[in-house]
């Protein structure tokens, strides 16, 4: 049993700016834990990329599964505040994470073409209008606003990982119908 990362360094004030781990996050952690042995022994990743790391809870958990220093754990988030909390969460759990403030994987591609071993993402999927997604001034809204059908961010992301950049990857993505 791998314990859920310690998040006691994050205040309720912080959660006004960064997505608080919720049921969907924990489902993702469960999925990773279920495949812990496979992740460690079969994939044995060298580079992991998490898109939209939020608190950094997921990559920290992955780091716990693999062991600190066994893989480079890259974490992107469009919200600078989330990038900052991500690093702190890693630190609070003795896992070295690498935060990059960016949209999706911008600034890492095409350099990381064929180079990422695991991609983790808990994408925003709540149905909103397109406008809500793109004109949103609040960072926290970007953490859950999924645009039309809740699919706009996911649809932007899928070709990145699946076709266009053809990562060798195992994706743990939660998609609701």
């Amino acid at each position: 049993m791998i314990p859920t990362p310690k998040l006691d360094h994050i205040s309720s004030k912080d959660y006004e700016n960064v997505y608080e781990p919720a049921e969907d996050t924990f489902l993702l952690l469960d999925a990773l834990e279920k495949d812990a042995e496979f992740l460690r022994n079969e994939i044995a990743p060298c580079i992991s990329l998490e898109i939209g790391s939020g608190t950094g809870c997921v990559s920290t958990f992955l780091g716990k599964i693999l062991g600190d220093g066994k893989a480079l754990l890259l974490c992107t988030d469009i919200n600078p505040y989330a990038s900052y909390i991500t690093i702190k969460t890693g630190y609070n759990n003795s896992i070295q994470l690498e935060s990059i403030t960016t949209d999706l994987a911008n600034g890492l591609l095409p350099r990381l073409y064929h180079t990422v071993d695991i991609l983790c993402c808990n994408p925003p999927y709540v149905v909103t209008t397109s406008e809500e997604l793109y004109s949103s001034k609040s960072a926290i809204e970007r953490a859950w606003a999924g645009g039309l059908n809740g699919r706009e961010v996911i649809d932007k992301m899928l070709p990145l990982v699946d076709v266009k950049y053809n990562f060798s990857f195992y994706s743990f993505t939660i998609i609701i119908d």
Binding site: Y84, T102, D103, N106, G107
Partner: peptide, 13 residues
């Protein structure tokens, strides 16, 4: 120019 602040690179355009 992309800034690095508090150990975090900012690649947003």
């Amino acid at each position: 120019v992309y800034p690095i602040k508090d150990g975090i690179p900012n690649m947003l355009l």
